[in-house]
Amino acid sequence: MHLAVDLTGSGAHPAAWRTLDPEQLRSAVATLAAHLDTSVRAGFDLALLDDSLTLAPAADHTVRGSLDAVLVASRLAPVSSGIGLVATVDTTHTEPFHVAKALQTLDHVSSGRGGWQVAWSTTPAGAAAFGRKDVQDEADAVDEAREVVGVVRDLWDSWEDDAEIRDAATSRFVDRDKLHYVDHVGERFTVKGPSITPRSPQGQLPVVVRVGSPESVGLAGRVADVVRIEARGVDRAAELVARVRTAAAEAGRDPQDVRVLVDLVVVLGADDGAARARRGLLDGLAGSAFAPATLLHVGDAASLVELVARWAPVVDGFTVRPASLRADLPLLADQVLPALRAVGLAADAYPVRTGSTLRDSLGLPRPASRYAAV
């Protein structure tokens, strides 16, 4: 199984931040670094950092602000090892050249552990924040995301692997014959290229797409290496997996090259009663019952391992979303992941995989530059 962990905010439960003291809230990056250390100890394949261009609704009890995901991932990369760092970047209001450069930089800083979770915006607030274009509907925003991913991937390939020669004797930094114009002319963007950043360690960073609409299923099938789905039951998960794989086949891809992970929200305790009590405490702080749109486990570590084993034949893995990072993540690291490893449902822990890229962890080959191949 491929196992991801979502390190966004204070946890999946909207009231998780209210269990922290003020210093932990003020020291957001330091707190996140500690969570990443725990995730490395657990042996997760990748950690996801969500991002948004707008504040959370005022009626929501979540923390309303957020840090830039790519900048935070680049800050954490040098002080971590082994684990993939997947940052969310919006395609609706961000130019593809900037997206390509920022993510290539993350891959260099992390020695090949970078990844990109593609996002798009359909809100008036997002459009108003930039003031450059009108609000787009889902179909239009997803289609724009498709074009952006295509341009970004062209830019990632615009330097061949050995284009950077650093020949001091001849004062040649690059071999210009190995830099390529992408010459993209599309519906929304005209991009000459090449990138100004040397080709990154992975060549192409893994692309993650969340599926939540028919349009996003088509996008995932065309461009995603990893697909996140939400499902409360096995049958629904199997249906979504089949739709994603069908979309990949229709796009001319091998469906088995796509890793489909189901979001799994966890509230852990020493036993089922303790876990239910923790959920009740968080719900009380929020003022309403927490009901995620995906699989929810409230119980002990042993029953979570049993749940993963039941779902294993249907999905390629899980994106684990701890209800509270402070409380649930250590239990995942100390009890759940070792138990999954013992029954063959999780990969070796670090430092066994230290030095591998995120593509290695996901079982994805490193692609050659398309321009070098030509």
Rank of each mutant, 00 (worst) to 15 (best):
A4V: 07
A4S: 09
V5R: 00
L7S: 04
G9Y: 03
A12R: 02
H13T: 04
A30F: 09
T31N: 06
L32T: 13
G43F: 04
G43V: 02
A47Q: 00
L48K: 00
P57V: 06
D60P: 07
G65F: 11
S66C: 10
L67H: 04
A69F: 00
V70H: 00
L71D: 06
P78I: 11
P78V: 11
I83W: 02
A87Y: 03
T92E: 09
T92Y: 03
H93D: 13
P96K: 02
H98F: 13
H98P: 08
Q104K: 08
S110V: 05
G114L: 00
W120Y: 15
W120V: 07
S121H: 10
T123P: 01
A125Y: 07
A129Q: 03
F130I: 04
K133H: 12
A139L: 06
A145L: 01
V149N: 00
D154W: 09
D154K: 14
W156G: 02
D157R: 10
A168G: 01
R172Q: 13
H180N: 12
E187H: 14
F189C: 09
T190F: 06
I196A: 14
T197D: 10
P201M: 12
V207Y: 03
L219K: 04
D225K: 07
V227E: 06
E230K: 13
D235E: 15
A237I: 02
A242G: 05
V244E: 02
A247P: 05
E250D: 15
D254S: 05
D254C: 02
Q256S: 10
R259S: 05
D263Y: 01
L264D: 06
L264T: 06
V265A: 10
G269Y: 00
D271H: 07
D272T: 13
G273S: 14
R276E: 15
R279P: 02
G280D: 09
G284V: 09
L285S: 03
A289F: 04
T294A: 08
L295E: 04
G299M: 08
A302E: 15
E306Q: 14
L307F: 10
L307H: 11
V308Q: 02
V308T: 07
T319W: 04
T319P: 00
V320H: 01
L325R: 06
D328R: 06
D334G: 10
Q335Y: 12
L340T: 10
L340S: 07
V343M: 12
A347K: 11
A347M: 10
V352N: 12
S356Y: 08
S356E: 15
S361C: 13
P367S: 14
R370Y: 05
A373K: 15
V374L: 15
